[in-house]
C-alpha cells in the first residue's frame, strides 16, 4: 500500500537525458520503479536507458499512459516543466530541482491549482513507497517495508529517520519529502492527511525545521482529526534568528517560526516530540507497542 506512488505507477522523467536525470532514472529502474520513458525537448524518437524519449509531456502521456512525473529540469526551466506536466494530465508531479525562482513557483502553483494534480517539492528528495516504487533520489535500500509513514522537509534527515525506524525493527509505508523551499506544492498537513487515510500506515513521523508555519498547522489538524500516533522532530533549535540555514525556507522570521515554538505547539496537540534526532526510531517503536 502506501500513498502517491506504488507498483502500478507509470513514471516518466522530465530532463531524462541530462546527467542527473540519467543517473537517477537508472537508480529508480534498479529499485524496480516502472519508468516508462522520459521527456527531453528535441530528442523525441530516441531511446535512452532502453526507454522512449519524447519531445513533450503530452506525447509521453498519450503513448505510455504515464501518471507520475519526476522533474530534473534546470531551475530556470523547471516552473515551466511543472505546468507542462499538469497540462498533459500527469496526476503526481515530483520536482527534485533546487533553486527555482520564487516568481516561477508562484505562477506554477497558481496554474496547477484547479487541475486535478498533486505537486511534491520542489527542492525535495522525492517520494518512496518501500518495496514498490522509488520516485526520487533517496538511497532505496534504507527504506524497508513496514507500517510507518514519513513526512519531511529534509532529504538526509528523512534517510536518517527511515534508517532508525528500520533499526528499531520496523519499516516504512511511504516517505514523502515535501521540500525545503518557501513555496511548495504539498504541505506538511496535506502529506499527513494522505498518510492518515492510508490503511497500511499505523504511525507517522513528521520531520520539520525552523521557518514557516507548516508544522503547527499540521499539528492542529492532527489534534482534531488524527487517528494514528505521530512522532515529531523539528531541526534547528540552535539556529540563530534571521539567518537562512541552507534551505531557502529555513529562516526564523517570526516568533512562531522557531523550533522551540513549533515543538511546544506540536506537544500541545498530542504529538510525540523528540528533542534529539537520534531518538526518532526508539520513539516510533514506543508509540507502536
Amino acid at each position: 500500500m502506501g500513498v502517491l506512488v506504488g507498483k502500478n505507477s507509470k513514471v516518466i522523467v522530465q530532463g531524462f537525458t541530462g546527467s542527473e536525470g540519467t543517473f537517477h532514472a537508472e537508480q529508480m529502474i534498479a529499485f524496480g520503479t516502472n519508468v516508462v520513458g522520459g521527456v527531453t525537448p528535441g530528442k523525441g524518437g530516441q531511446k535512452h536507458l532502453d526507454r522512449p524519449v519524447f519531445n513533450t509531456v503530452s506525447d509521453a502521456v498519450n503513448t505510455t499512459g504515464a501518471d507520475v512525473s519526476i522533474i530534473f529540469v534546470p531551475p530556470a526551466f523547471a516552473g515551466d516543466a511543472i505546468m507542462e506536466a499538469a497540462d498533459a494530465g500527469i496526476k503526481v508531479i515530483i520536482t527534485i530541482t533546487e533553486g527555482i525562482p520564487v516568481a516561477d513557483m508562484l505562477k506554477a502553483k497558481e496554474y496547477i491549482k484547479d487541475r486535478n494534480v498533486r505537486l511534491i517539492g520542489p527542492n525535495c528528495p522525492g517520494v518512496i513507497t518501500a518495496g514498490e516504487a522509488k520516485v526520487g533520489i533517496m538511497p532505496g535500500f534504507v527504506f524497508k517495508p513496514g507500517p510507518v509513514g514519513i513526512v519531511s522537509k529534509s532529504g538526509t534527515l528523512t534517510y536518517e529517520a527511515a534508517d532508525q525506524v528500520a533499526k528499531a525493527g520496523l519499516g516504512v509505508t511511504t516517505a514523502i519529502g515535501i521540500g525545503g523551499d518557501p513555496i511548495i506544492g504539498t504541505t506538511t498537513l496535506e502529506a499527513v492527511q494522505l498518510l492518515m487515510a492510508d490503511p497500511a500506515t499505523k504511525a507517522i513521523v513528521m520531520i520539520g525545521e525552523i521557518g514557516g508555519e507548516l508544522e503547527p498547522k499540521a499539528a492542529r489538524w492532527i489534534k482534531e482529526n488524527g487517528t494514528k500516533p505521530v512522532v515529531g522532530f523539528i531541526a534547528g533549535e540552535t539556529a540563530p534568528k534571521g539567518r537562512t540555514m541552507g534551505h531557502a525556507g529555513a529562516i526564523v522570521s517570526g516568533e512562531n517560526e522557531s523550533a522551540a515554538a513549533k515543538k511546544k505547539i506540536m506537544r500541545e496537540c498530542g504529538i510525540h516530540v523528540v528533542d534529539s534526532p537520534a531518538e526518532i526510531g526508539a520513539k516510533v517503536k514506543e508509540v507502536l507497542t
Binding site: 538526509t156 536518517e160 525545503g180
Partner: peptide, 22 residues
C-alpha cells in the same frame, strides 16, 4: 544536507557543546 546539518547542531547542544557553525 541542510536539515541533517541543523539536526546535528541540535545534537551538539544536547551533548553539552555549542555549535560553532552550520
Amino acid at each position: 544536507g541542510a536539515g541533517l546539518a541543523m539536526a546535528t547542531m541540535d545534537i551538539i547542544k544536547l551533548s553539552g557543546g555549542d555549535p560553532a557553525n552550520f
